[in-house]
Design a protein around this nucleic acid. Structure first.
Lengths: 237, 237
DNA sequence: TCTTTTGTTAATGTAAGGTTAAACATAATT
DNA sequence: AATTATGTTTAACCTTACATTAACAAAAGA
């Protein structure tokens, strides 16, 4: 299974401690982006989506709480863990007020941190990805459901599609009657554009053509050196 | 709008401390049921629905962890906070493994506890919008009562389901005809996503399929690399 | 023509899922 | 305390699904 690592934003001004912590987390299969101060932290946060933020409280210029507030304004849901040298009660309260998910006092046990991270990320595990992305297409007499990865002909028995078949057909459908550049599919689906991935894609085009043969009005045309075109003939009647 | 107070189950063997804490929580608008030991705690838990459990770890006869496990068997979702006199690292890890939501060392600041309670209850509130308190499902010719953990076929004799069977079927039913991602079940039910829990889940899928065979219109389909789909064929007649 | 691109089929290797039984763990009963 | 029942995990083995690569044929463009 293609299991995507969880992304963590770590904002910690102490370069030694920050690096050590980052390495430790990465050793445990998290993708970690390390920002050295609050300003940088916010910039990095805006540029990407994170599954968790770990913020040091004591930082020059912009402390962890202020940063947390800014983060909350952009995203009310990311879990936040605060790190602090000493547990001042008021700090703790302040942290929870900003919507902290947890609080850790330095020095802390790294295993404990790992458990907390796991617990928190699990908690947030979204109930299915509510992408409002488009995943249903009508292709001639076919219906493509690219979320459930099947293709139905005339409302009959659905054919299961493999992930690659599915993604490719979806891309073609998104560009219906228009050019779907080779390069687009290769970078989006194969994440690499070379001789072999290109040949692989051709193999998948062949598979799709076989499926789509059932409806003679539907075909995948090649545009030499450019890409492919999914056409539905007589679509404007 | 009539806002119902949140219900807390407090299991604490020290009568003095327990009473003080209970009163304090009630002063802060929580409904509190106080059990004096693990046994009693479990009895009370079974008799009612709670928004949160606060469990003392060190208790005679039945400690907090054991109690937590029993509680988890009945309900995979209630938030649990552990109270402990001394923070043994192994204890903390053990706690998180049972699905702790938080951990507090005695003596703790009561305001901090309040904040944690608030944070945790809020979290659950937003998380569980999707899987609202739904316990009864019609699955083809079956009736699933996931509160009482049984499955009835054609209104006949109910089959008892184990906690895992029950939770898994319930999750599938919540996503009827739609994708129920592997990851979701693993994080929600098994609280961990690795090779072994994944295999365990497959075993449970097999068990469910066996139960569901009675109704040929009901099946659990696999979506390779994604998860499972509970389909009821001819559901639209 | 002849070089490059595309079409197609088959072979291979790896990962995911299905199934069954044994091992383990715990609760309930005797 | 010992036994039995129940629930869950682990292990083993097998099947299926998927993606890539190779090989060769055909088409397009130069």
């Amino acid at each position: 299974m293609e299991e995507q690592n969880k992304k963590i934003l770590l904002v910690e001004d102490d370069p030694n401690f920050g690096t050590v912590l980052k390495d430790y987390l990465m050793m445990n299969d998290y993708d970690v982006v390390h920002a050295k101060n609050g300003m940088e932290g916010f910039e990095k946060f805006k540029k990407d989506d994170y599954d968790l933020c770990i913020l040091d409280v004591m930082m020059p210029y912009k402390d962890g709480f202020t940063l947390a507030k800014e983060i909350r304004e952009k995203n009310a849901d990311v879990p936040i863990i605060f790190l602090t040298a000493k547990a001042m009660k008021d700090d703790v309260l302040k942290g929870y007020k900003v919507g902290a998910d947890d609080y850790l006092n330095k020095p802390f046990d790294s295993e404990v941190l790992l458990m907390k991270i796991k617990a928190i990320i699990q908690r947030k595990a979204t109930d299915s990805v509510a992408d409002s992305k488009q995943f249903e297409f009508k292709i001639g007499r076919f219906d493509l459901n690219s979320k459930l990865r099947f293709l139905k002909f005339d409302g009959g028995e659905p054919t299961k599609l493999s992930p690659k078949e599915n993604e490719l057909l979806r891309l073609l459908a998104l560009h219906e009657n228009d050019l779907m550049p080779r390069e687009l599919a290769l970078t989006k689906i194969w994440r690499d554009d070379n001789y072999f991935t290109s040949r692989s894609m051709d193999v998948y085009i062949a598979k799709l053509r076989k499926y789509l043969k059932l409806d003679p009005k539907v075909e995948i045309l090649n545009i030499h050196g450019e890409g492919f075109r999914l056409v539905i003939n007589g679509g404007e009647n």
